[in-house]
Nucleic acid binder design. Structure first.
Lengths: 202, 202
DNA sequence: GCTCGCTGACTGACTGATCAGTCAGGACTC
DNA sequence: GAGTCCTGACTGATCAGTCAGTCAGCGAGC
C-alpha cells in the first residue's frame, strides 16, 4: 500500500474514531484499530498525536473549502437560504452530530495549540466571507437592503454555530431546525427587500 | 475546618483549576493544589472525579439561578438589552473567557454523562425561559410585536452562545461585541414597536 | 482536672491502568 | 542490498483511586 493510500486511510480512521470516542477519549490505538494498522505505523507517518491531528484538521479544511467553493448560480436569497439550511442537523444524522461534538472538543483545544488555532481561524474567515459575499451580491442586485455586511455575516454564523452546539451538547432534536426557521424569518424582515412573508415592518 | 468550609474551598479550587488547566488537562492533583489540601481529601469527600465535577456543575447552576432571578423593574426593552449585553466578554476579562472555555469542554462531555446532561438542560431551559418571559411581558405591554415567543428566545440564546463560543475558541476580541450590536439592531427591527435608535453600551 | 475512647478531617505512599512514543527487526519491492 | 512500509513488544510517564495511619477535638467516666 502506498504512502498516499495509507495517509487517506489514516485520515478516514481518525474521522471514524473521533465520532466513536470523541476528542477527549481518542487514543492512537483507536485510530490504529479503525485503520486496521498498528499504532507504530501512525508514529511512522506522524511524529506525534498532535501532528496527526493537525494534519487531520488541515485535511478537513481542504474538504470544506472544496464544498463551499461550489457556488451554484441561484439567486442571493436562495443561496443564503440553502447555506442556512445546510447547517440543520436532522435527528437521524447521528454520525454528523457525533462528529461535530468531537469537533467542538477539538475547537476548545485551539486555545492551547497554535496550529489548531490557525486552521480554525481560517475556517471562520471562510464561513463569514462566504455569507458576506452572498449578502454583497444581494445588495448589488437590489434584492437586499443596504445593511452592514460583515457584522450581519458574523451574526448569522454565530447563530447557526450556537444552535448546532446546543443541539448536539444538549442532545435535543429541534434546536437547529427551530433557530434556522427563526433566523430566516428575521432575515426576511431585515434584509429581503421583496419579502413574500407578511412581517411587522412596514 | 468544617466539612461545609472544605466543600466551599474545593468548589472554589475546582473553578480556579479549571480556568488554569481547562477541563481536558484537569487532574485531581491540580484541584488539591489549588485548595491547599491533599488529593486524598478530595476522594474522602467525593467518591470519584466525576462525582466532584457533577457537584461542581450543580453548584454553578445554583449560583446562576440566583443571579438570573434578580429581576430589576426596568422596561422589557431595557431588560432584554441588559440580558444581551451581559453576555459580552470584554478583552480584559481573561478569567471569564478561560472559564467559559473550560465550560465548553465540559458541555461537550455531557453527551457521555447523564448527570452533566441533566444540569445543562436545566440551565438551557432557564436561559430560554428568562428571555421568553421578558418578550412575553413586552408583548403584553404592547411595546413588542406579537411574535412567536419560544423560537425567538431560542434564537437569541443560540446567537449569544455561538458568538461567545467563537470569541473564546478563536481567541478574538470582537465577536460577542459585534454580534450583540447586530442582534440588538435586528431585534429593534423585528420586535420593538417603537424603535428609537438605542446605542448599546456607554 | 485528667485520661481514655472515639470520630471526623486529613495525609503520604502506594497500586494498577492507561497511553504516547520507541526500537529492533521483518517483509516486500525495485 | 537499499529503501519503504509496517509490526509487536517494550518503556516511562501520568493519573485516579486506595489504604493504613496521624491528629485534633470532644464527651464520658472517674
Amino acid at each position: 500500500m502506498t504512502s498516499e493510500q495509507t495517509h487517506d486511510k489514516i485520515m478516514e480512521a481518525t474521522h471514524t474514531a473521533l465520532c466513536k470516542q470523541g476528542y477527549g477519549g481518542l487514543t492512537m490505538q483507536d485510530i490504529a484499530n479503525e485503520a486496521g494498522k498498528s499504532k507504530s505505523l501512525l508514529h511512522y507517518h506522524y511524529d506525534t498525536k498532535a501532528d496527526l491531528l493537525v494534519t487531520f484538521i488541515e485535511h478537513l479544511l481542504d474538504d470544506f473549502e472544496d464544498r463551499v467553493a461550489v457556488t451554484e448560480d441561484a439567486s442571493p436569497q436562495d443561496r443564503l437560504l440553502s447555506f442556512i439550511e445546510w447547517f440543520i442537523i436532522e435527528p437521524h444524522e447521528e454520525e454528523r452530530a457525533a462528529f461535530h461534538l468531537a469537533l467542538l472538543e477539538l475547537r476548545a483545544q485551539a486555545a492551547f495549540n497554535e496550529a489548531f488555532s490557525e486552521q480554525l481561524r481560517a475556517s471562520d474567515e471562510l464561513l463569514r466571507e462566504t455569507v458576506a459575499s452572498i449578502i454583497r451580491e444581494g445588495i448589488g442586485d437590489g434584492v437586499f437592503y443596504d445593511v452592514e455586511v460583515e457584522p450581519l455575516a458574523a451574526m448569522i454564523i454565530a447563530t447557526l454555530d450556537g444552535a448546532r452546539t446546543r443541539q448536539i451538547t444538549l442532545s435535543t432534536d429541534w434546536y437547529t431546525e427551530t433557530v434556522c426557521t427563526q433566523l430566516i424569518s428575521a432575515l426576511q424582515t431585515m434584509l429581503f427587500v421583496d419579502s413574500e412573508v407578511v412581517t411587522p415592518r412596514e
